[in-house]
Amino acid sequence: MNPSVEPAAAPSIGAPTATAPSTGATLIRFDRAERLVHRSVAILMITCMTTAAIMYNGFLSAPIGHRRFVKLVHVYSGFALPVPIILGLVSAAYRADLRRLNRFSPTDWRWLRSRTRRNGTIRVGKFNAGQKLNSALSGGAIAVLLVSGTIMYFPDLTRLAWRTGSTFVHDWFALALGLLVLGHIRFAVADPGSRRGMSTGTVMAAWAEQHHAAWADESSIDSAPVDPAPLDAAPLDAAPLDSDPGSTVMIDP
């Protein structure tokens, strides 16, 4: 989406507004490792989806052809896809977010049942229940596609019936995951504030207050004790120790 992916430096702690294009306080949402994982998985996923669409649909494969090459690109993108997901575990922020995605609170179930879930009255945490569902379903589907794809690619691994079963599973799970990814992209397209979080690492505090109110509050509380700005950064417009949550600059939780 945003081609200038990585800002020259990840926004440094204590200088929350240094890279903000517009005025207003920002919150740190994703660290550099997380954004790198997301970027790599996105590229590999889109490669897999594109090559799959070419191989599967006659109206695409007819003009494009080159089946051996397309298949090779698909298979190796697929094998590579879990690598960044696993490498990300070196980042503490990534591990912490995985834990948040894993846990469903009563609020999440309420959010899922609500018809007005996006109007902000349900104060969701860093991730809403839809994001949690999406990540769990995607994770499971990726694992299934990896295993079934491996069985298809190395025909000597298993018996024939399982190979046919793998093709069947691979087709249906790919269709489901493809729809999930398209839905994910659709929500991202509709929400520039959220996209900003994944492309720069920070979000506007006002955006967080609107979409992830509980996280915004929690971030301010967490950051309060740890603030002193580093030497090279001067807080510009904020009082980091301000005790009024929701209107101030927040620091990395």
Partner: peptide, 28 residues
């Protein structure tokens, strides 16, 4: 409470994986 709760995400991942495994065995 927003960030606590049952590990539903993990259950979903395992459930999806089990569905996939069943599909591989019975899919034919």
């Amino acid at each position: 409470a927003h960030e606590d709760g049952a590990p539903v995400g993990r259950r979903i991942v395992l459930g999806v994986a089990a569905l996939g495994a069943a599909g591989i065995v019975t899919g034919r």
